[in-house]
């Protein structure tokens, strides 16, 4: 907070100085109240009825308290009314509960706002003062008279008054641009430290149970069929039509039906029905197009790349193409 170029006279007084006559004499010399600061190690009077402008501080407290009550009503009553969830037969918005929460928030806001206001007032109360002799804490009294555009004759008069009141030292306080102390930096450091990023933990997102159609995990017991090849055949790599039949039955019939009509048991649960594979629209597709649908999926149908090897997918395509000619369903081949 930069300060205007200003000069001031500071005078140090011994402990037993009479303050009131000094101030009175300064006022008579034409110095305004705002130009005089008396710095003491203790309050000189018991006055505790601060006014900011014309408003007493306690009015700010009361207003903050009312805001606190409103916030308490919002939390305890508003959030419950907005998202009502029945618990234990209790009313959604309970008066005693709103009362308790509002009481606490009222106090919180009243106290915090009063505190902030007094902090701001304290900082503004000594805005012009740059120096404070630490001997004040030893019991001395320091008076400061700010002199903005005061004539030299007046300055001499003020000096005289101060000396007559019994000052031990009088100094000219030449102003320097006083920078705000590093409170801003400190606040920034604290805020940065508070930005601890909470790790997004994935509680219970991965379940040990097996989802339907989930592939077995690495620890399959002895005797399980390895994932890479469903067909346990020895010797030739040519996958026969019978392989296509088996693979269709295992992987496709639950949606497309045992005969490929699109009427499998799962079809009832699907909004977009599985295709009827006998339909000319499907049958006129090229082998590659069918292979592509099988590999990359289509709409709701999942991709089978990774689930089935390329050879397995080709054999299914061969089987699908042969469907219209078959009389019996896949599970009776």
């Amino acid at each position: 907070m930069a300060m205007d170029e200003e000069e001031a006279l500071t005078a140090l007084f011994p402990r037993q100085v009479e303050i009131d006559p000094l101030v009175h004499s300064l006022r008579e010399a034409g110095i305004s109240e705002a130009q005089i600061s008396i710095m003491t190690p203790l309050p000189l009077s018991e006055r505790a009825s601060l006014r900011l402008g014309s408003m007493p501080l306690y009015v700010i407290t009361i207003m903050a308290g009312l805001v606190g009550i409103a916030i308490g009503i919002f939390f305890a009553g508003g959030t419950a009314a907005m998202y009502p969830l029945m618990t234990g037969g209790k009313p959604i918005v309970g008066a005693p509960i709103v009362g308790i929460i509002s009481y606490e928030t009222m106090m919180l806001f009243a106290i915090v706002v009063t505190f902030i206001t007094s902090v701001v007032t304290i900082k503004r109360a000594h805005r012009g003062v740059t120096q404070r002799d630490s001997r004040v804490d030893d019991g001395y009294v320091m008076a400061r008279v700010s002199l903005s555009s005061t004539s030299t004759a007046r300055i001499a008069l003020i000096r005289n008054l101060l000396q007559r009141a019994g000052s031990l030292e009088i100094q000219i306080e030449s102003s320097q641009k006083a920078r705000e102390t590093q409170s801003g930096k400190a606040i920034a450091v604290v805020l940065a430290a508070m930005c601890l990023i909470h790790g997004c933990s994935r509680d219970m997102q991965e379940q040990p149970s097996y989802e339907p159609q989930e592939a077995p995990r690495l620890h399959s017991p002895l005797g399980a069929v390895p994932r890479d090849s469903r067909a346990v055949i020895t010797g030739s790599l040519e996958l026969s039509m019978s392989e296509g039949v088996n693979l269709f039955r295992i992987n496709c019939s639950h949606c497309h039906g045992t005969t490929g009509r699109g009427n499998g048991p799962a079809a009832a649960y699907l909004k977009e029905k599985p295709a009827d594979l006998h339909n000319p629209e499907v049958q006129t597709l090229s082998d590659s197009a069918l292979y592509d649908v099988l590999t990359r999926g289509k709409d709701v149908m999942p991709p089978f790349r990774g689930e089935l090897s390329a050879k397995e997918r080709r054999s299914i395509v061969a089987y699908v193409k042969s469907l219209p000619m078959l009389e019996k369903p896949a599970n009776q081949q």
């Binding site: 600061s37 309050p43 006055r47 505790a48 601060l50 007094s118 003062v129 004040v136």
Partner: peptide
């Protein structure tokens, strides 16, 4: 210390705040 100087207005602010709180 908020740059506390010990002026009478500061003391009064402090006393008032304490008396209210």
């Amino acid at each position: 210390c908020l740059g506390w100087k010990g002026t009478q207005r500061e003391w009064e602010t402090l006393n008032t705040a304490i008396r209210i709180i």
